[in-house]
Amino acid sequence: MPLGTLDRTPPPFFKQGTPARTKLWVLSVLAVLLMVVDARLQWTAPLRSGIAVVLYPVQWVALQPVRALQWVGAHFTALEAARRDAQEARALLAQQAERAGLVEFLTQENLTLRRLLQLRERQAPTAQAAEVLYTLPDPYVPGVVIDRGSLHGVALGAPVMDGFGVLGQVTRVHPATSEVTLLSHRQLAIPVLNTRTGERYLAYGTGERDMPALTLRFVPLQTATAAGDTVVTSGMDGVYPPGLPVGTVSEVSADGGEGFAHVRVEPSARVRDAQHVLVLRVTLHSTTGAQQEGRP
């Protein structure tokens, strides 16, 4: 074959075309131009919205396996938590049933002894339910506002508790609302009784907002109080009825200063997140009829 008949043009694969550097500059300028136009005129916003609408079904379908796995995991986790809570509730119910029977027996025995000795019966507190509206904004005075006031019979100084223990005391009463100072306040004192040792002390708040606690003041270094002891109201002040749960001793050390021990008490009440409370009203229980029935 003659040489002149061969095609001397290179195949398209080896053609260089526009230099790569020129393409880079052109595309860069075009990208900057599009960004400026988009920032000024917002032309691409409808385009993004349309793409998002088109891709939403695809995204929804792609997320379903992940959501199904999350749902299955959450279901089994909740099931296990519910089973564990049920076991704890049954154990606690058995303990409470045993204690309830003992309390009923001791109450009847105490009533009989008081009748024999012709002593006045203890004051029986009555309570009305209230709901916590909000927390006081004052960082130096831990307190809450409840939805009961003077129109509902709330009195100044009335003790307040939640379903677990003493929460605080009413310090300001309005017609429809009242302010409750929490027991974690530094200047709020509660006379307490150690149910194990019978020791009586004054409990003061530590003022801590993140970890509310109480301290027992004037506790001697030779005290029998130990960690785990339960303290309740002693009723010596005439404000708090005796026997209300206050807290549990969490720490006893000899570094309290001035010859006294340092005793820290964790409150029984949910000081930080209480939602429903009881406002107590201490009234004298009439015993005339009961005494007449108990006497010959």
Rank of each mutant, 00 (worst) to 15 (best):
P159H: 04
A78V: 02
A81V: 12
T225I: 14
L63M: 10
V192N: 02
A82Y: 10
V32Q: 06
E199N: 07
L151E: 08
A94F: 12
T77Q: 14
E251M: 09
V231N: 07
A20L: 05
D273P: 03
F260N: 15
R40K: 14
P241E: 07
E104V: 09
F76N: 06
D255M: 09
G4H: 11
L6S: 15
T233Y: 00
M161F: 07
A254P: 05
V103Q: 14
E208G: 06
L79C: 09
V154K: 01
E179G: 00
S268K: 11
S286I: 09
P175C: 04
Q87A: 15
A62T: 13
V36C: 11
E179C: 05
V271G: 02
A290R: 11
T288W: 13
G207Y: 04
T22G: 01
D229P: 07
E98S: 12
T223I: 07
V61M: 07
V26F: 09
E121N: 12
A81P: 01
R67V: 07
G247C: 06
G143D: 00
V58N: 02
R196C: 04
R122L: 08
S234F: 00
L278R: 13
P12A: 04
D255E: 14
N110G: 02
T135P: 05
P46K: 03
G157K: 05
P220D: 08
I146S: 02
T230A: 15
P12V: 00
L93Q: 11
V166T: 03
E98N: 13
A203N: 00
L133P: 11
G238M: 01
I146C: 03
G228K: 03
